[in-house]
Amino acid sequence: MTPWDQEPLLKVEHLTMRFGGLVAINDLSFSAGRNDITAMIGPNGAGKTTVFNCITGFYKPTEGMITLTHEDGEKYYLERLDDHRIASETNVARTFQNIRLFGGMSVLENLLVAQHHKLMKASLFTVGGILGLNSYRLAEEEAIELSRFWLDKVGLESRADDTSADLPYGAQRRLEIARAMCSKPCLLCLDEPAAGLNPRETQELNELLLEIREEQKIAILLIEHDMGVVMGISDHIIVLDYGEKISDGTPEHVRNDPAVIAAYLGVEDDEVDQVEAEVAS
């Protein structure tokens, strides 16, 4: 019994996703620990982003069950919920491989949209907002304060009022993470956060993620190709290939797994046994 299987935050069981005849994910099961950084790696087209899309409600899985258990024991079955409810009620946040900010809105507004649910309630669905109710004003101030906190964390405090599309690439990536964090998630799903970053920015990203995990006590689920990031910060790695899980364990375990080496180096199926034998010896 590995540590992440005991009371996991996220438990994916027998997840299968088919698009017509194409099987993107086939019978995938894994768990993500409550305060772990879990990385999902695998060659291009292995189905990593599809797993994310199923977790965040963007796709409805063909088969399988995705259970999220909050700290208070409340269970949510994510495959049954609409995507906005997954974000606002179960507190799962995500970022995208290709950045998806609200480009025409200011940096601060991007972070406020992520707190929409809370503000809508406080404003009594806008009626109170128009009347200038005190509770709404307080909620709004609180939201701005939280936004400022995260802007400060990702080093964008001086650019709060700039249009987000005008930010440089690395800053947009950090803003996306800040936006996800503003919804106070218990699970943060990051789809290739280091893509397109230079080595220094990648290093900063590593530190940021470790800091988030340490201070916010949340779980991070990560898709990444940059092995420096993956091996450097993850507690638990899941390797996918052609929609199936081929390895699952600590970085140490995965690094030495013959199946992983075979998938990455690309050997023929009938050679796998041979490679395994070689690695084992």
Binding site: F96, R100, T126, R179
Partner: peptide
């Protein structure tokens, strides 16, 4: 907040949904 979410939907409906 309503106006902000309207503008967010205007720009990227999928992403707006994913932030709740």
């Amino acid at each position: 907040a309503l106006g902000r979410s309207q503008r967010a939907c205007e720009q990227d409906r999928v992403m707006a949904s994913l932030v709740g």
